[in-house]
Design a protein around this nucleic acid. Structure first.
Length: 820
RNA sequence: GCCCGAAUGGUGGAAUUGGUAGACACAAGGGACUUAAAAUCCCUCGGCUUAACAGCUGUGCCGGUUCGACUCCGGCUUCGGGCACCA
């Protein structure tokens, strides 16, 4: 009586074995090529979800495959453990964020272990561990010393529900990325990281990351938003001051007829004349009250107010009235725009509304433009007109010429401008990494000296859920002495954005226990960069940009020599059920625990890998899971049916194989080749698994009774499936009589001789349409094959009475007879 | 508006360099085994025509290149994603 496939027992057995044998412990070994594999670490929200199952299954296939291919694999796991849900849960349950977080971690670690993932658990870290965040405080201090961390007062995005600040990257469609509440503007004194210093490096290197999906790189380039243009000074009439604008369209400067300033522009009030003061103040007040989202919507009505002052167009010497305009943004360029109503749609609408002059300076090649009759701005390139010595030039080349001219005349300079803003990292929350800074009335901002680190997040805090950060209310934390003068001082109570922790965890994984500094250079130099990073596309800009920035900062601070954190990036699709993303509110959530209890981890892994290639969305289908379970049972059964034969079998004797045996071996070795290519080069696990299914079908249909060939075939099936379903294959491998665990064996190599076809199927077309198929010996000559095809009776039906014009021959594939 | 991506049976998907469209699986239908059910196994399975052999047609739509197009080119449609009063 044959034993039934019982995932529960064998999965536990092998998980314990791997743990005991430290199978996946990563140690520096210069005899092997290193391979650093990483999946985005999870937020410990309570339980893992299907997205995790998929993400980590994909990673595990790659990890186990690379290991069997002879790489020294580093595959760590940890927890992105600071963040608001912990704090909210604490308020609700009257528990402590740390308790909540560590309990969740314990539970989720068990869940992940039940999946049989090949992690080196000894490197596990949680970002809320003092041993982790203390080094991050040190990074902060080193950045502060270099001017890469600085404080400034500015208008920041404020989420009223989370009661904290958000970075630009964390505002999506005007809402908070986490809770969706409408974000408004608040003027606050905040800490920033100077990511703009790295804008050029970050942009430039997007062209140096061939292993990243193009769309992610495009998104990052858009976000960085580099544009080439000019800064031009427009002297203010009757003063010695001038207004500096940034423009990418210096070719239209002869058409600039007025000036638009952002309402927040520092010169706004200074240049306003007494008679215009009332109107201008009213306008500025109104804009302050309008929220930013509405204000920056494209269909928002363009509005402005005249300041009473004029500036002078440096090239035409024309008097240009200076307006404040609601669509001009203070935080892009210089906060001032030279208005060219004829060649910019916004300026056009503004000019029409306030009856301002229009002057055409670029026209299409074939027609003239009349400012009196045009109904929209002409924004294309064209021929220069009304532009002095530049008339007749192509506007594209005039851009260069005018820039040079402005520069030579001292009116301006060529410049580049970035859309990227500095990263605001202050968060008015408790459950985060304290910013290690002290405020002293005498000495000002004083960084906490290195010897006083870490600034420990105090545990005994009251969570009321009201009045902002609990840290600010805690006198024992706030009150301190100034490290410089020794007088009483106050501690910074803001904590760092949680994206800071995820910006360098992959570096710390290289040396999680290092106690003498931020990073152990030797370890980091050995393992970095991450060879393969895997995670969701939703971090295309946020996390993936911050992590690149941090890597470059840490490089410049001398902690790593890596320029880029992630060589290859795989962005996996979402897990969908019944047409939409799994969510509690839609009631379409599949619980990984229930799935694993019912079918085992191998089935859960197999289905999530088989149903779609990694980068596509995966449509969850309960019946499909049954199918995967069925397939594992078939493997289980066929191996057991052949167990005695396998154990008794001698090695394959290639010289004495029958045709049937050679055919079966060919199928086996072609499958080895196919699976190897699909996994190694394309990460197309679905087709790799399909080809093993095909082989199993062939095997079951075969009448081959050679124990040697059967053994080779079944051992191959088991080895090829090992990265996908590690438990069942490990068990079968052992039952087949192998002493070395499957995870310690080498990946099978296909036999180049075995895959050579003896016969080929050649498709015969007439005028490109399939008419017949012939199977011929592989060495059949071209002429012989053509004759055979021509004589084929199905072919004759379509060629009879017609002239053969030509015959296309693709060796081993097809013959196309062209008749007419 | 700009930039990316996608569209293939009832469903998920395959076709890797321009060479048999629909691999593999799910669902469905039929059959075997069983007292019965489950499990398992076998057969059918894009559409139309046909008793059958077979033929025609078919990869979002319209054209083009080619002996040959899911694949390349031009033009559209729909859906998804990103950016957007960015000067």
């Amino acid at each position: 009586m044959e034993e039934k496939y019982s995932p529960k027992d064998i999965e536990q057995k092998w998980q314990m074995s791997w743990e005991k044998e430290k199978t996946f412990k990563a140690i520096v070994n210069n005899d092997k090529k290193k391979y650093y594999l990483l999946e985005m670490f999870p937020y410990p929200s309570g339980r893992i979800h299907m997205g995790h199952v998929r993400n980590y299954s994909i990673g595990d296939v790659i990890g186990r495959f690379k290991r069997m291919r002879g790489f020294n694999v580093l595959h760590p796991m940890g927890w992105d453990a600071f963040g608001m849900p912990a704090e909210n849960a604490a308020i609700q349950n009257k528990s402590h964020p740390a308790t909540w977080t560590y309990e969740n971690i314990d539970y989720m670690r068990k869940q992940l272990k039940k999946m049989g993932l090949s992690y080196d658990w000894e490197r596990e870290l949680a970002t809320c561990d003092l041993d982790y965040y203390r080094w991050e405080q040190q990074i902060f201090l080193e950045m502060y010393a270099k001017g890469l961390a600085y404080k400034k007062t500015s208008f920041v995005n404020w989420c009223p529900k989370c009661e904290t600040v958000l970075a630009n990257e964390q505002v999506e469609d005007g809402g908070c990325w986490r809770c969706d509440s409408e974000v408004n503007l608040k003027e606050l004194d905040q800490w920033f990281f100077k990511i703009t210093d790295y804008a050029e490096d970050l942009l430039e290197n997007t062209y140096n990351l061939p292993g990243w999906p193009e769309r992610v790189l495009v998104m990052q380039r858009n976000w960085i938003g580099k544009s080439f243009g000019c800064e031009i000074d427009f002297p203010i009439e009757n003063t010695i001051e001038s207004i500096r604008v940034f423009t990418t369209r210096q070719d239209t400067v002869f058409g600039a007829t007025f000036m638009s300033l952002a309402p927040e522009h520092p010169m706004a009030m200074n240049i306003t004349t007494t008679d215009r003061m009332a109107d201008v103040s009213a306008f500025i007040e109104k804009i302050k009250k309008t929220d930013r989202i509405k204000r920056t919507a494209e269909d928002f009505e363009k509005e402005g107010v005249f300041t009473g002052s004029y500036c002078i167009n440096p090239l035409t010497k024309a008097r240009m009235p200076i307006f404040l305009a609601n669509f001009v943004l203070m935080d892009y360029g210089t906060g001032a725009v030279m208005a060219v109503p004829t060649h910019d749609q916004r300026d056009f609408e503004f000019a029409k509304k306030y009856d301002l002059p229009l002057k055409v300076v670029i026209k299409p090649a074939d027609v003239d433009l009349d400012p009196a009759t045009i109904d929209q701005a002409f924004t294309d390139s064209g021929i220069m007109v009304n532009s002095g010595q530049f008339d007749g030039m192509q506007s594209d080349s005039a851009k260069e010429a005018i820039a040079d001219f402005l520069q030579a005349e001292g009116h301006g300079a060529k410049t580049v401008n970035f859309r990227l803003r500095d990263w605001g990292i202050s968060r008015q929350r408790y459950w985060g990494n304290p910013i290690p800074v002290i405020y002293c009335d005498s000495c000002g901002v004083v960084p906490v000296p290195e010897k006083d680190l870490p600034v420990v997040l105090p545990k005994d805090v009251a969570f009321t859920g009201e009045g902002g950060s609990p840290l600010a209310l805690m006198e024992s934390f706030v009150n301190c002495t100034c490290p410089v003068c020794g007088k009483a001082a106050r501690r910074e109570t803001d904590t760092m954005d949680t994206f800071v922790q995820s910006s360098w965890y992959f570096l710390r994984y290289c040396c999680p226990d290092f106690q003498d500094g931020i990073l152990d250079r030797e370890q980091v130099d050995h393992w970095m960069s991450v060879d393969q990073y895997i995670g969701g596309i939703e971090h295309a800009v946020l996390h993936l940009l911050y992590a690149r920035f941090f890597t470059k900062v840490l490089r410049d601070l001398g902690h790593t020599n890596a320029d880029e954190p992630f060589i290859n990036l795989l962005t996996q699709g979402m897990v969908i059920k019944d047409g939409s993303k799994m969510s509690k509110s839609k009631g379409n959530v599949v619980d990984p625990d229930a799935l694993i209890t019912r079918y085992g981890a191998d089935t859960a892994r197999l289905f999530s890998l088989f149903a779609a290639p990694p980068e596509k969305d995966l449509d969850w289908n309960d019946q499909g899971v049954d199918g995967s379970f069925r397939f594992l049972n078939r493997i289980w059964k066929i191996v057991h049916e052949n167990l005695d034969a396998i154990k008794a079998a001698s090695p394959v004797n290639i010289a004495s194989l029958t045709t049937e045996e050679r055919n079966l071996r060919r199928a086996v070795h072609k499958t080895i080749r196919k699976v190897t290519e699909d996994v190694e080069e394309r990460f197309h696990f679905n087709t790799a698994i399909a080809s093993v299914m095909e082989l199993l079908n062939t095997l079951q249909a075969s009448s081959c009774d050679s124990a040697a060939v059967m053994k080779e075939a079944l051992e191959s099936v088991v080895q090829l499936m090992a990265p996908f379903v590690p438990h069942i294959t490990e068990e079968l491998w052992q039952r087949m009589g192998n002493c070395v665990p499957l995870s310690d064996t080498s990946w099978p190599e296909y036999d180049r001789n075995a895959v050579i076809d003896e016969e080929v199927l050649v498709v015969v077309q007439v005028n490109g349409k399939l008419r017949s198929k012939v199977t011929v010996a592989v060495d059949t000559g071209e002429e012989e094959l053509k004759a055979l095809a021509m004589a084929d009776e199905k072919v004759l039906l379509f060629t009879e009475g017609k002239t053969v014009r030509k015959i296309i021959y693709v060796p081993g594939k097809l013959i196309n007879i062209v008749v007419g």
